[in-house]
Design a protein around this nucleic acid. Structure first.
Lengths: 336, 336
DNA sequence: CTGAAAGCGCTAACAA
DNA sequence: TTGTTAGCGCTTTCAG
């Protein structure tokens, strides 16, 4: 029918006469016509929908994800794209992700995916992928990341600058995106300042507030009678909040007795005056959309530029020093 | 093809012989076959995708939405449904929302929609709708809400119980979902306790932290020389955070000089020890999915039960009193 | 048990 | 300027 042209297509508008055009439009209105996207997608091979896959731990709101997602929504919306969310329950399963590429999305963004063996996975054909803060670089897939190592280094130096020496790093899970980089930045700062290896304090932390609360309590119990660290550098903001709660409940004051730093500079950090390292998560979400659409368009025009040009895009980080960072305590504080 | 049956269809598995079945499966594997959802949806009229529409103010992370969305994701995922997010820039436009119902989703959830004239809008045919905290009841559409009026009443009573009398209500935008109910609950509590009308303090607030900061500063300036209220009851948590920042910056202490309450009991309230009223947002998100799918299934079986049975589902609220609520100040505190 | 054929709603190429 | 036709990838019905 000519109906297609007038109702949907951007086709040459001059093709149809005014008379029929009107006739069609009124008929459509009377019939309450709505174009069917599934049908259109079937032929045009374009859904105008982007996929986002994320590990979804339903127990706790994930600020990191939410902030990136906000950026994605913003950019996608501005370009007339929709966003559909796919969730993985516990761990990343590339096969399942590939199963999502069944014509309902034009491209996929993976948020902080963790894969052990980069060689075992391969970018699927036909559907472009982009990752944000991926644990490994995957052949053919562009990663968007930030300078986590140097951000961690920067905030550790801020602590050292103020005279802190006994700094405890509550490490994130070392197999998770970024945690290893944050640790590396911390260690580099400590070494630069000539802190002896045996003076460096590290313990297993977590990206979750609840879990950290548990782990940090244990650590304090295990170190009873020792001196409290001058400062604690946490895997992320949620972790820092957990530490803060434990410190408060044991009667220690932040920052008088101990300074505290988080990572990610989520809203949590701003509202609790927590020092943190800012990753421009929203901007990274924006960029993910921009890059992905570039690939989608290229793919559609038959130039699969997907596999080339996968140099990671790296955003800068900045430390935000707030009142949770003070000077070292004058008199020694003990763990009781 | 018989291929369809063995690869996709839940069709009778006995229909195809082992031999051909194997032959098809290996062929599919070699060809890297993936079923195309758009095509399948075209015939089955089922996308297994739910839509969520929300007003998206990109400037500030919306905790209310995020918590509901988390609930939606959780429930949808558990039922093999995907979720695609549609955003409205500034205000609700029902025509645009109807445009989203083009075969790409099976049903739609509207989060805190605001419509002036309920009569002017009509549930679209074919695509079931459910709203969460809608401003008005829309014929044919089920709303999921919570007892905001009584929650507000409850926390106001908690303040009055402790001896607070001069309570300021920072009202939310009265045209927005819930804000009017919160105000009504506050007023009912004040009247029940016999507070004279002219003693009741109310001023325009906002659901946004930034905007509240601005408005509250103005209010304080306008009331310089008067007594500071005993307590402030805010439109939501974000609003309360704004007030807290202003109070801190002016040298007032919470709760010694003034008690402070929020609404929604988001993570923000928990981490800042802010008293608040808990709406079970996550559960409400769950329920939205459950109800919506019920309607989708009914619709598919040709029993459009959408227009009947639209009694709203109302969740209970509970006040959470934390350290931001104290006793009234002993000596009068003045606004300076 | 298997193959052929029709059709979901749309677009695109071509013929009238 | 219009109408016709084929086909996107799939499911379903009906013959073989």
């Amino acid at each position: 029918m000519a109906a297609s042209v007038v109702l949907n297509g951007g086709g040459s508008s001059s093709r149809i006469s005014e008379a029929t055009r009107d006739r069609i439009i009124t008929a459509a209105k009377k019939l309450n016509y709505r174009p069917n996207l599934a049908a259109r997608a079937l032929v045009s091979r374009r859904m105008n929908t982007l996929g986002v896959t994320v590990i979804f731990d339903s127990s706790e709101l994930n600020f990191f994800f939410l902030e990136v997602f906000n950026g994605i929504l913003e950019a996608a919306n501005a370009r007339g794209q929709n966003t559909t969310v796919f969730t993985m329950a516990q761990q990343w399963d590339f096969d399942r992700i590939q199963g999502f590429c069944d014509g309902r999305i034009d491209g996929m963004i993976l948020i902080a995916p963790y894969f052990e063996a980069p060689s075992s996975i391969q970018a699927p054909l036909g559907t472009p992928f982009v990752t944000v803060n991926s644990s490994v670089s995957i052949p053919g897939i562009l990663d968007i990341m930030s300078e986590e190592e140097s951000g961690s280094h920067e905030i550790a130096c801020a602590l050292l600058d103020r005279g802190h020496r006994r700094i405890l790093h509550m490490m994130g899970p070392q197999n998770r995106s970024g945690a290893a980089q944050r640790r590396a930045g911390f260690l580099r700062a400590m070494r630069t300042w000539g802190i002896a290896n045996e003076e460096i304090l590290e313990t297993e932390g977590s990206f979750s507030t609840d879990h950290t609360r548990f782990l940090f309590n244990d650590w304090l119990d295990a170190n009873r009678g020792q001196r409290l660290p001058d400062a604690i550098l946490c895997a992320n903001d949620a972790c820092a909040i957990g530490c803060m709660e434990v410190l408060n409940s044991r009667g220690y004051r932040v920052p008088d007795d101990v300074s505290l730093c988080g990572f990610d500079d989520t809203l949590l950090a701003k509202t609790t005056a927590l020092s943190s390292v800012r990753q421009p998560l929203r901007e990274m979400g924006n960029e993910a959309v921009v890059q992905l659409l570039k690939r989608v368009d290229a793919e559609l025009q038959g130039q699969p530029m997907g596999t080339e040009n996968t140099e990671p895009i790296i955003f800068p980080t900045h430390s935000a020093v707030r009142s949770s960072m003070g000077m070292p305590a004058q008199a020694p504080v003990w763990i009781r």
